[in-house]
Design a protein around this nucleic acid. Structure first.
Length: 441
RNA sequence: GUGGCUGUAGCUCAGUUGGUUAGAGCGCCAGGUUGUGGCCCUGGAGGCCGUGGGUUCAAGUCCCAUCAGCCACCCCA
């Protein structure tokens, strides 16, 4: 049996590469306008980096990481998300010595060992942005403004923004306590996972989709009622700025993100057009994480967006690029001239094509048509003899003759002509002088 | 990790209660046009029927296993 790609790893074929390029250049333009600078970090890190940052009790760390030992016995992991590696690089390269905020962006593959389905792969790709050393709330709002700019520029309308505040280490314990006591006595209603979460992370019960859990959560205390003074004013200011900026969002008190490090602002961009995997982007504030990884106590916020999921939402490419000119040449001498001609045109940036072997003229035309070439230049012994080229505009079959200025005659006796390179250059110049107006028109 | 559905030509798919040389459309190649694409006509190439095992005189068809894809759960991008 032939070798297949590893499960959940997908090839990006030329037919889809245009969309990806569109997403990437658009993202770079949007992020650039907000002052973000690119950073590239390894896709492989020491396992403990992710275990410590993402949280040992999260699904990602518990069961989704691609972890293995290298030849020296170190435990390494293919990154399941981008933030941890960026923070590691930020600390290791002492970027924090320069006053912030630091706006960094990156893009590339992430790996999670899950069962593949629509919009979910084991190797997937994210756009990722981070603002390091900034407490917000302006940055919080700006990130969401930037995300909506990106989605708008990509032509995606049916996406809504969900927003929540998770509080901070000062106020969350109290809320957690309140929630735990509220759920006490309702354990039987909860799904297996949530019964376990009751002790590990009761907040997750709130966004569980299981009917019993949703029912049990009715009337549950809301984080928004338990925010401390600082968190409340922070969150209010984020919302005020979003309102002023005209960004639509929906408050979602059940939005609890799966990574442990989030505090205060969390947000997610969701769509109904992707089946069960409805999040196209998500992020939030992680003020304590940098210090936890051994860096300075600087507040940070960021988000990631799934490139595959964005690509699924972008309609088919309107039009593939087409060759500027196709040279249909028959016979050894004309083909030699055509070969040199295509190289010269390409050097000057024109997309020139010809067949790689001497097929029938009809077959060459068919190929030119299939590749949607704008123009076809006919080169045969007759053209060389008469020193006149035939050029045809394919869209309307309009065909004209043009003077080749001696180049045709030169290629009739190419062996002798080789000696005089200077004359050859002159003849090519004359030839292109006469051809270019036809190509450009 | 769990469940459901599906693997036949490059693509989309037919394939009778198991029965002899496995089909169609599209695409591809060539000819009809001795130097001109698209449309039309004619012909052609292209299949370990996902893989391995089993049942049977006989398996694309039935059984088991396995791999892969899709969808959902879980979770997230």
């Amino acid at each position: 049996m032939t070798i297949q790609a590893v499960r959940g790893m997908k090839d990006l074929l030329p037919s889809d590469a245009g969309k990806w390029r569109f997403i990437e250049v658009t993202a770079r333009a949007v992020f650039g306008a907000f002052g973000f600078q690119e950073i590239r970090v390894p896709i492989l890190e020491r396992t403990e980096l992710f275990a410590r940052s993402i949280g040992a009790a999260t699904d990602i760390v518990e069961k989704e990481m691609y972890t293995f030992s290298d030849r020296s016995g170190d435990s390494l992991t293919l990154r399941p998300e981008a933030t941890a590696g960026i923070l590691r690089a930020y600390i290791e390269n002492k970027l924090h010595a320069i006053p912030g905020p630091h706006k960094l962006c990156t893009l590339g593959p992430m790996f999670r060992h899950e069962r593949p389905q629509k919009g979910r792969l084991r190797q997937f790709h994210q756009l990722d942005v981070e603002v390091l050393d900034d407490q917000g709330p302006q940055s919080d709002a700006e990130l969401m403004v930037m995300l909506t700019h990106l989605l708008t520029r990509l032509g995606l309308q049916k996406i809504s923004l969900k927003l929540n505040s998770l509080g901070c280490p000062n106020c969350r314990p109290a809320f957690r306590q309140a929630l735990t006591s509220f759920l006490a006595g309702k354990e039987q209603q909860l799904c297996e996972d949530c019964q376990r979460r009751l002790s590990t992370n009761p907040l997750r019960v709130l966004d569980c989709k299981a009917a019993g859990c949703q029912e049990a959560a009715i009337g549950a205390p809301s984080m928004s009622d338990h925010l401390c003074e600082d968190c409340r004013t922070h969150f209010a200011e984020v919302r005020r700025l979003l309102d002023l900026a005209g960004v639509a969002y929906a408050l979602d008190p059940r939005l609890v993100r799966g990574l442990d490090y989030y505090v205060r602002t969390t947000f997610e961009a969701v769509t109904g057009d992707l089946g069960a995997q409805n999040a196209v982007a998500g992020g939030g504030r992680y003020d304590g994480l940098l210090a936890e990884l051994g860096g300075p106590a600087q507040a940070c916020i960021g988000f990631g967006a799934g490139i595959e999921r964005l690509a699924l939402l972008i309609p088919e490419e309107p039009e593939a690029p087409r060759p500027d000119i196709f040279i249909a040449a028959t016979g050894p001498k004309p083909r030699l001239m055509a070969f040199l001609m295509t190289q010269k045109l390409r050097r000057d940036g024109y997309w020139a094509e010809m067949t790689t072997d001497d097929k029938s003229l009809k077959a060459q035309l068919r190929k030119a048509n299939k590749e949607r070439a704008r123009l076809v230049l006919f080169l045969g012994d007759r053209e060389l003899q008469e020193d006149k080229g035939q050029i045809k505009r394919m869209d309307d079959s309009h065909q004209v003759e043009f003077e080749m200025g001696g180049l045709g005659h030169l290629f009739m006796n190419f062996d002798q002509a080789q000696a005089d390179a200077e004359m050859q250059d002159r003849l090519w110049d004359a030839f292109f002088h006469s051809l270019m107006p036809l190509i450009r028109s």
